[in-house]
Amino acid sequence: MKARAFSYFRAATIDQALHAHARAGDDARFIAGGQSLVPALSLRLQAPRLLIDITHIAELRGVRREGAFLRIGALTRHCEMLSEPLIAEFAPLLRAAAPFVAHPAIRNRGTFGGSVAHADPASEFPAMTLALGAEIEIVGPSGSRRVKADDFFVDLFETALQPGELITAVFVPLFKADQRFAFDELARRRGDYALVGCGMLATCTGDRIDDIRISFFSVGNTPTRVKGTEAALIGSSLGAERIAAAQAALEGDLAPPEGDEVPPAMRLHLARVLLGRMLGRLGAGA
């Protein structure tokens, strides 16, 4: 239960952090909140030569509007997602998801960028970047780039991040007056990983859904957008029949894996139940 020996470097700038990573021959890990990384090191699931602390890099901090987006600095802590007024106003889906992220003391240290980079398929925030159509800003040895959330999550704990790259910020399209959102999850205990969870963002004209993005977590190797289900909803209003059609479509979108304590059929059932409840609320909450 103790980490293998490593060297520690506290970077003051992004350049310092990238330089240190390269000098360690990429046998290094960036650490921010460390709420997933420290246990992984303690269990020796990971054992880098060098740990690069990025929490003191000012460029990675702050939440602000930038054009049509809200720029959320990678070091924004989960507790700030709850308290920051700009999040509540322009990214209310993230505000709704934040109380479900782990326990209060974890939220005091864990960071938004770290959660997205870690890409735990059972985590709330990575899945919400999908529902929001967010863009992830990445910096690395070959410069800076922005990747759409749809292209970011590749496989289990695998993302578009290449060795030596780190997330600088997540850009979330500003929430608009004609949009509605919903978040919910089913867990055995508050703060535990969800058995299944979901976030959705709809653009509406009156009660008609013009566009909707729905993303599930805890249903497979990555957070998962359910495009067939979305298609079943676009162009209609949310009556009981339409919701039932969406629930039926979910079966074609999700294939929960075998081999853990929750059988795939049960997970799919819970996903259907959750979807039905959330669409009902979305329809009622004009």
């Binding site: 420290v38 209060p104 240290r109």
Partner: peptide, 16 residues
């Protein structure tokens, strides 16, 4: 309490 907020002392290294 770390800088006034509750945190897990097992989830950080002393150097941090």
């Amino acid at each position: 309490q770390l800088d006034g907020r509750a945190v897990h002392a097992c989830l950080m290294f002393t150097v941090q």
